[in-house]
Amino acid sequence: MMLVFALAMLAEPPVAATPAPPRVERCGYRIVQSYPHDTSSFTQGLFWHDGHLYEATGQYGRSRVARLDLDTGKALAQTKLPSDQFGEGITRWGDQIIGVTWQGGVGNRWSIKDLKPAGTFTYEGEGWGVTMVGDSLVLSDGTPDLRFFDPATMKEQKRVTVRFAGRPIPMLNELETIDGQVWANVWMTDFIVRIDPATGNIASLLDLSTLKADAGASGTDSVLNGIAWDEKGKRLFVTGKNWPKLYQIALADCR
């Protein structure tokens, strides 16, 4: 039911009300380049830093955080999570990587230099995706809310409800911040949404509905998930869970 609801909300905005909901831009994409991706990686988090991709993967007993070589998709360094933790999103905060887990309410910190553990923390609810917006760590948890935290103390600061043409949208998954907007995968769909973190309004909808087929991925769990932005090179990377390819894409046909 949740999936049907999300797809319906993204596909058809409601009849205009007063005041009218903000207009949502719709974009397609074009593939700039493709790279190898480890098909054993159940991708949960992705970001780019200093010439490398960093990836977090899920599944009990198989979750890890890794520094990847873009050209080969192989791990240059990695640290496994405890077997009772289901890894989810990661983000960089200074010289640390901060990651969350699905239902355990436990978060991890690693040194970005060598991926060695640098501490843990706890939080309420589920953990899905994380990103940094300014000085705040932003967490998605499967609900329509983005939760803002102080990354040093993990004290919750506020919540913002994400809306598509006025309607709350749940199942926000992996997150990435690009030019001040939060980009989010919508779980079990082929959509990425661009969110104004101040208001929660979705400004743009990116439709990647043919990318999974191009990747040759199969299986109901092999969904689009993973967004990374190379700010210096202005490159946008996306992939999916257990996909054999990672893509650099560009937006196209925005209207």
Rank of each mutant, 00 (worst) to 15 (best):
L3V: 15
V4P: 07
F5V: 09
L7P: 01
L7T: 10
L7E: 12
L10I: 12
L10Q: 08
P14Y: 01
V15M: 09
A16C: 13
A16S: 14
P22A: 14
C27A: 06
F47V: 09
H49G: 07
H49I: 02
H49R: 13
H49M: 05
G51K: 07
L53T: 04
Y54Q: 08
E55A: 09
E55W: 02
A56H: 04
Q59E: 15
R62T: 06
R64G: 00
V65E: 00
R67P: 01
R67V: 02
D69R: 02
D69T: 12
L70K: 02
D71M: 11
A75F: 00
Q78A: 08
T79K: 00
L81W: 10
L81P: 03
S83W: 12
Q85C: 09
G87N: 03
G87S: 11
G89H: 07
G89S: 11
I90C: 09
T91L: 08
G94C: 02
G94P: 02
D95T: 10
I98G: 01
G99C: 05
V100I: 15
T101D: 08
G104R: 14
N108F: 15
W110S: 01
S111M: 08
I112R: 04
P117R: 02
P117Q: 08
P117F: 14
T120M: 14
T120D: 14
F121R: 05
T122Y: 10
Y123P: 04
G125A: 12
E126A: 06
V130I: 14
T131K: 11
T131Q: 07
M132N: 06
V133P: 04
S136G: 10
V138W: 05
V138S: 07
G142M: 12
G142F: 03
T143Y: 10
T143D: 06
L146R: 02
L146G: 03
R147E: 06
R147L: 09
F148G: 06
F148L: 08
F148M: 10
D150R: 13
A152M: 13
A152L: 06
T153D: 01
M154A: 03
K155E: 09
G166E: 09
G166K: 06
G166P: 10
I169T: 15
M171V: 08
N173E: 11
N173W: 15
E176N: 12
T177W: 12
T177I: 04
Q181V: 13
Q181A: 15
V182A: 06
V182H: 03
V182K: 00
W183G: 03
W187L: 13
M188S: 05
D190L: 07
D190W: 04
F191A: 10
V193P: 10
V193K: 07
V193F: 13
A198H: 13
T199L: 08
G200Q: 11
N201L: 14
N201F: 09
I202Q: 08
A203Y: 01
S204F: 00
L205A: 07
L206A: 08
S209T: 08
K212Y: 02
K212R: 15
A213H: 15
S218E: 11
S218G: 11
G219I: 12
T220M: 11
I227P: 06
A228M: 09
E231M: 05
K232W: 03
K232E: 12
K232N: 08
G233Y: 03
K234P: 00
R235D: 00
L236N: 00
V238N: 01
V238K: 05
V238T: 02
N242T: 11
L246V: 00
L246S: 01
Q248G: 01
Q248E: 15
A250P: 07
A250L: 01
A252E: 14
A252Y: 03
D253C: 10
